[in-house]
């Protein structure tokens, strides 16, 4: 029997260059509709992973800081108990999953998410006809009136389990995830290895090693949400000299 996984991610802020490749990768992998200008202006754009930019310092010594934010798959997720229909719940692999069929669109989960990573389908999604063949057949297209969010590309995790654990009967190790390209699309696309994906239950994996770094922290730790995503602090040589 395969051992229990607990999927997690490490985001090394020090490496992030704010290139938005992860955003595009996520968009095409997960059938997220194309955001137009009007969507951004009305604050209804859907980006399962977004890159928040902060300015640090005073002119002329201004630095841009980037922080990719996506669903933190909290072990103690505030969005879960407030859903009346169990549309969002915690599965046994540490994932915070969204069941589209159950969702009735109360949007309470979005209100109670401190990370602002839940998105509501205000209208039915649409693509230009030329992109219809681009849609990912493994991912449901969400209709209007329901919530959606980052799934850690659960379709890829399932494929890995099916191929490696199911067909070959082998253990799904860190290396095999990397070799088989089973990481979430954003991790795949990241040119600087900012994002690292893996099994937090596997003591040898890179995620566990990195998450134990002394630079490691979690967003809004004081809220006690216990996220599965670890962030590594920016290494700032200038800050030391101060």
């Amino acid at each position: 029997m395969a051992k229990q996984h607990k999927w997690g991610m490490v985001v090394d802020i020090d490496r992030c260059i704010g290139c938005q490749a992860c955003v595009i990768a996520c968009q095409s992998e997960n059938n997220v509709p194309i955001n137009e200008e009007v969507d951004f202006l009305s604050r209804r754009a859907k980006q399962w992973i977004r890159i928040d930019r902060f300015w640090e310092g005073e002119y002329p010594n201004v630095k841009a800081r980037f922080i990719p934010v996506f669903c933190q798959h909290c072990d103690n997720a505030p969005c879960e108990p407030v859903c009346p229909t169990y549309a969002t719940y915690h599965n046994d692999q540490g994932l915070n999953v969204q069941v589209y069929n159950r969702c009735v669109g109360t949007r309470y989960c979005a209100n109670n998410c401190p990370y602002q990573v839940r998105f509501f389908n205000f209208f039915n999604p649409s693509w230009p006809e030329s992109l219809w063949n681009q849609l990912n057949p493994d991912v449901t297209v969400r209709s209007r009136g329901i919530m959606e969010k980052c799934t850690f590309c659960v379709q890829r995790i399932r494929r890995a389990e099916r191929l490696i654990e199911g067909q070959k009967g082998e253990e799904l190790t860190d290396q095999k995830i990397k070799d088989g390209n089973f990481m979430p699309a954003c991790v795949n696309a990241c040119p600087t290895d900012t994002l690292v994906f893996g099994d937090l239950n596997d003591e040898t994996s890179e995620v566990v090693r990195k998450s134990k770094s002394d630079r490691s922290y979690r967003l809004f730790a004081e809220l006690g949400t216990e996220p599965s995503v670890f962030y590594l602090k920016k290494v700032d040589p200038a800050a030391k000299s101060h």
Binding site: N76, P78, P81, E222, L223, G224
Partner: peptide, 9 residues
């Protein structure tokens, strides 16, 4: 109690 925030607990 509902929020399960550490400080409130």
């Amino acid at each position: 109690w509902y929020g399960r925030m550490p400080v409130e607990q």
